[in-house]
Amino acid sequence: MAKKLALDELPKRLIENNSTTEDVLMMYGFVAKGTEEDNITFYLDPALKTAVIVKDEDIIHHVKVTKSQNPIGGTIIWIKNASLYLQGKAAQPQAHVQSQQNAEQFFQGDIYQQFANTVQGKASPRPQGAHVPVCGCGKCGQ
C-alpha cells in the first residue's frame, strides 16, 4: 500500500472555497516599493526596465527565490484578477502612463492622419491653387 502524499501549500492558498484558478497569474520578478502604501512595484526583468504595479489585495501567495535556485534571487507571486494586469488596466508606473499619454497625443492630428492615409494608399486630396494654406486659419490661401 502506497504512502499518502502530503498536501502542498500552494493549492490550499490558490483554490479557496472550491474557486477556480482561471483568473490567477503567476509572475517571477523583483519586489520594490510601490507608488502607494497598498501596492508594490513588481519588476519583471533583472534590468528593472519592465514593471507593473500590483495591489496588495490581489497577491494570493508569494515565494522568495533562494540564491541556490537562482543566483540573483527574486520572488514568485500569484495574483488574482489577472485579467486586469494582462490587459493593462491595473495601475502602471507613472512614467509609463505619461509616455503612453504622450504617444497618444503625438499620433493625433491632421499631419499624422495624412501620413497614415498615404501609407494605407488612401492619399488625401491636395489643396488646389498656387498658395497652400499653412496656418489653418482659413484666411490664408484665398
Rank of each mutant, 00 (worst) to 15 (best):
L5E: 10
L5N: 07
A6K: 12
A6M: 06
L7N: 07
D8H: 13
D8Y: 10
E9H: 09
E9L: 12
E9R: 08
E9K: 09
P11S: 05
R13L: 09
L14P: 03
N17L: 01
N18E: 07
N18K: 11
S19K: 12
T20Y: 03
T20A: 03
E22P: 00
L25P: 00
M26R: 13
M26T: 07
Y28S: 10
F30M: 02
F30Q: 02
V31D: 08
V31N: 09
K33R: 13
G34V: 02
G34S: 01
T35A: 06
T35G: 02
E37M: 09
D38Q: 05
D38W: 10
N39H: 05
I40V: 13
I40K: 10
I40W: 04
T41S: 12
T41R: 14
Y43L: 00
Y43I: 03
L44M: 11
P46E: 12
A47H: 09
K49C: 05
D56W: 09
E57G: 06
E57H: 06
H61F: 15
H61Y: 15
H62Q: 15
V65K: 05
Q69H: 02
N70R: 13
P71A: 07
I72H: 08
G73W: 06
G73N: 01
I76V: 14
I76W: 04
I77S: 06
W78S: 01
W78G: 01
I79V: 13
K80R: 15
S83Y: 02
L84T: 04
Y85W: 07
Y85D: 07
Y85M: 06
L86A: 03
L86K: 13
A90V: 03
A90R: 04
A91R: 15
A91Y: 10
Q92S: 15
P93A: 07
A95N: 14
Q98M: 12
Q100E: 15
F106A: 15
G109W: 02
Y112E: 05
Q113D: 14
Q114R: 15
F115E: 04
N117T: 01
N117P: 00
T118C: 06
T118P: 00
T118S: 12
V119F: 10
S124A: 14
S124L: 13
S124N: 10
Q128A: 08
A130F: 12
P133M: 06
V134L: 12
V134Y: 04
C135S: 06
C135N: 11
C135G: 01
G138Y: 04
K139M: 07
C140P: 02
G141F: 07
G141L: 03
